[in-house]
Simulated scan of single mutants.
Amino acid sequence: MQPENVAILLATYNWPRALELVLEALFTQTRLPDEIVIADDGSRADTQGMIERMKAKAPQGIAIKHVWHEDLGFRKSIILNQSVAVVESEYIIELDGDCIPEKHFVEDHLRVAREGAYVAGSRVMISSKGSAMIQEHGLQKSFLKRFANSANAWRVSFLQNILAPYYKQNNLLANRGCNIGFWRKDILTVNGYDESYIGWGHEDIDLIYRMRNAGVRKRFLKFGGVVYHLYHNKEDRSKDTFNKQKALDAIKEKRIRAADGVDKYLRTKEEQKDK
């Protein structure tokens, strides 16, 4: 069984132009999402203003929700959990606010989606020069492909389901939070993201392997689900080694549920309903 409705879980932080381009691309998908939930890790007011303008341009039927918390450093796991708690769709595709989806992105993800599985995708890295031109000129027809010299930009729809159960099945780190799809019920089973991950890195690996430990198998979306990652300077990666080891420990110990995860936001949501 494939999903009937889908939400885009869109992570962002203080880059409104990139987020605007991503939203424009989501508004022209061959299969429109039912929801776009923006997980905002403390952006300034200019991001809020841009989101309000884009809400007015959204195609009819797309619910856009903006979930924000105060900027107290890199707390992506927390804002993602808060955003998952407001998702109403049965399927979630996670995307970063600097990754522009090709027009078949949602269609491709849903084609490969299956019960009891998550879908891992890849990305096309855009150069500094190409990223600057895209931001200046916008999403012109075929414009992104001018700067894509990677096989990850190829789209061959009939190969997607043939390769999905086999491609990169044994690569521990071939899972990226900027392009991944999963059933809402599966992320709730593992209690969402582990909020002990503070600082950049590896919270997505931890999540995926806890889902795998819970019996959720991997399907890899090759030759589809294309995203174009705009160039930017690297974030502070001082927590990289610590977070990577924590993720590897979760894999080794076969953990399933996060001790500090999404459940508290779900309880708050239910309590508010009861009032």
Rank of each mutant, 00 (worst) to 15 (best):
M1Y: 05
E4G: 13
L10H: 04
T12L: 03
W15R: 15
T28V: 14
D34E: 11
G42L: 09
G42I: 04
G42D: 06
S43I: 01
A45C: 01
A45Q: 12
M50T: 06
I51V: 15
E52V: 11
A63T: 12
K65I: 12
H66W: 10
G73V: 02
S77C: 02
I78P: 00
I79R: 07
S83D: 04
V84D: 04
V84K: 04
E88W: 04
E90V: 05
L95A: 01
C99Y: 09
E102H: 14
E107P: 02
D108L: 03
A113N: 07
A113V: 08
E115T: 12
A117L: 03
R123Q: 14
M125R: 13
M125K: 12
S131W: 08
Q135T: 08
S142P: 00
R146P: 01
R146L: 14
F147V: 04
A151W: 13
A151F: 13
F158V: 10
Y166R: 13
K168R: 14
Q169W: 09
N175P: 00
G177N: 06
G177Y: 04
G177C: 10
N179S: 14
K185Y: 08
K185H: 11
T189L: 15
E203W: 02
D204H: 06
L207T: 01
R212W: 04
N213W: 07
A214E: 12
G215Y: 01
R217L: 03
K218P: 00
G225R: 06
V226Q: 05
N233R: 13
R237C: 07
A250M: 06
K254W: 05
I256P: 01
V262P: 03
